[in-house]
Design a binder for these strands. Structure first.
Length: 493
RNA sequence: GCCGCCUUAGCUCAGUUGGUUAGAGCGCCGGUUUGUGGAACCGGAGGUCCUUGGUUCGAGACCAAGAGGCGGUACCA
């Protein structure tokens, strides 16, 4: 080994856009995953775990005229020259799995999935290059009841995450309605029209962020933003712009009122009629189940991503304003979204397989709750049993087991340091109490329990160093058999 | 990708018109306790001033390029 190699020290650094989650944030993610998985499991969904890598063509991540995967995915070629890509969501792998194992699976297939997905995009607040999603999907159910169920489940998950009524809303729309509006203003069913439709969708997606005026520019000629960047518009005329904006603004307070406002905008279009029928059926179900109390609403300005949605689309939004450390409002985007994608599995099978689903961005959700100070952090750490005598470890382990059996989180100090360092460790772990058994206690068959919170309070009153040194505030000794009760008492004070 | 702002100790920052050994608060470590965290007092460690190149007798301060961070915008199938 050369001297140079020997001295090499890699600089510890985290890849850009990737996040470490420790402590409260990691706990929050786990709690959200548990909440969502609990709701879905209770509704009969089966867990499915698929692999992180997929063949890129199975993800549909190829540009039509290109031989390498699209930007936005992390991809590389395998030994056999095939393009592999990290999954960018859990829906495309589901489509692959269903197509691959179609015959033996129960239809409809109800499955939920939890896991990280990867996107090669610019990171931002609540936008990560690796993040955890929880998905639930129903495959093989063509009717709007399946969509309505997805919406109600999404609301249930938000509730299970600890949010109160009014702090979240599931917004509902149907892509067919916008298609009808665009057809009505002369957007042709051609390649050119498809591009135009795409630009319209992107423009509408920016409504909440940029406002109606900017979106009107994007629907028309184009828009120059504050940084001087120019975005080409959809090229609609004034009549078209007004029609699209009127559609997006047709949302009303109640489900019925919104449906009534939308009806006249659909004209004679068959697509529009289909979309309205679906939306009406969803609204009736949601209403009958009592979710029209603010948890679910129709919002024509919701369009969702661009790709595979074919009908109803939904989005879960936090209604609490999020601020950063400087008090500036932070836009986190939606906590989740979904919709119907009847053509996705057909890519593999040649015949349509209807499907609908919902996906939560757990990492973003957790980051938003963190910014809101709503993490529900654990009140305290584990009880720490000091390891004062190296030859007494088995008795320390026995005490820890007794506490755990009584449902008290506990650990034995595992370091090699002295008592002072062990106390500091317990303090840093936010331990509610420490158990002290050294030579003295062992000789007399006792244990000492020190209440760290109480000790902290008492320390504020001590001014004299002698008192500090000699006082043993907030700790009590008692018989070894009373360990659990003494710790419990300390926890309750 | 494009535009703008930022980068000095672990963290938050100060650093006069370019001028000797670069500072503070908090944190960390140690001592006043060799069986005690947290108050108080005393002491200590810790900096390639993001990197590279340039201007200058002299650069943490000025210039250029690059990297990283933040914000906006685009992209997000």
């Amino acid at each position: 080994m050369s001297k140079k190699t020997k001295n090499f020290r890699p600089r510890a650094r985290r890849p850009k856009g990737f996040e470490d989650r420790y402590g409260a944030l990691a706990n929050a993610e786990n709690a959200l995953i548990g909440a969502a998985a609990g709701v879905y499991h209770a509704h009969g969904f089966e867990p499915l775990s698929t692999c992180a890598l997929e063949y890129a063509d199975c993800l549909g991540k190829f540009l039509p005229d290109d031989d390498r995967p699209n930007e936005g995915v992390f991809a590389f070629t395998d030994d056999d020259q095939q393009w592999m890509a990290l999954r960018y969501d859990l829906t495309a792998p589901l489509a692959r799995f269903v197509a691959e194992n179609y015959d033996p699976l129960p239809k409809p297939l109800r499955r939920f999935a939890v896991g990280p997905v990867w996107r090669n995009e610019k990171p931002g607040p609540g936008r990560f290059r690796e993040f955890i999603q929880v998905d639930a999907d129903t495959v093989g159910a063509p009717g709007p009841a399946a969509d309505a169920e997805m919406i109600m489940l999404a609301a249930d998950v938000m509730k299970a995450a600890g949010l109160a009524n009014g702090e979240y809303v599931i917004r509902i729309n149907n892509r067919k309605l916008l298609d009808a509006v665009l057809a009505g203003i002369g957007v042709a069913d051609t390649d050119e029209g498809a591009i135009q439709r795409l630009r319209v969708l992107r423009a509408i997606d920016k409504l909440d962020r940029l406002g109606a005026d900017a979106v009107a520019q994007l629907l028309g000629e184009g828009r120059k933003d504050a940084s001087g960047d120019y975005t080409k518009g959809a090229g609609l005329d004034a009549r078209g712009i007004n029609a699209v904006l009127a559609f997006t603004q047709a949302g009303r307070a109640g489900l019925e009122a919104t449906l009534s406002a939308l009806d006249p905008l659909m004209g004679a279009s068959d697509t529009g009629k289909d979309g309205m029928d679906e939306l009406r059926a969803i609204a009736e179900t949601v209403q009958a189940c009592g979710y029209d109390d603010g948890r679910a609403m129709i919002d024509p300005s919701i369009v969702r991503g661009l790709g595979y949605y074919t009908g109803p689309v939904f989005e879960a939004d936090l209604r609490i304003e999020t601020k950063n450390e400087k008090g500036e409002p932070v836009r986190f985007g939606s906590a989740g979204g979904g919709g119907r994608y009847d053509d996705l599995i057909a890519r593999f099978r040649g015949q349509p397989v209807p499907a609908t689903g919902f996906s939560f961005g757990v990492s973003r959700f957790a980051a938003a709750l963190h910014a809101l100070g709503r993490l529900g952090e654990e009140a305290h750490g584990p009880v720490v049993i000091l390891a004062l005598e190296a030859d007494q470890m088995t008795s320390y382990f026995a005490m820890a087991n007794e506490l755990r059996a009584a449902n008290i989180r506990a650990e034995v100090y595992m370091g090699g340091s002295g008592m002072k360092a062990q106390m500091k460790y317990a303090d840093k772990r936010n331990a509610p109490a420490v158990v002290i058994v050294g030579e003295d206690e062992r000789a007399s068959g006792e244990v000492t329990v020190k209440n760290l919170n109480l000790g902290k309070q008492l320390s504020g009153q001590i001014k004299d160093n002698k008192e500090w040194r000699e006082g043993r505030p907030a700790q009590t000794s008692g018989a070894r058999q009373a360990l659990v009760n003494m710790v419990r008492e300390a926890l309750n004070r």
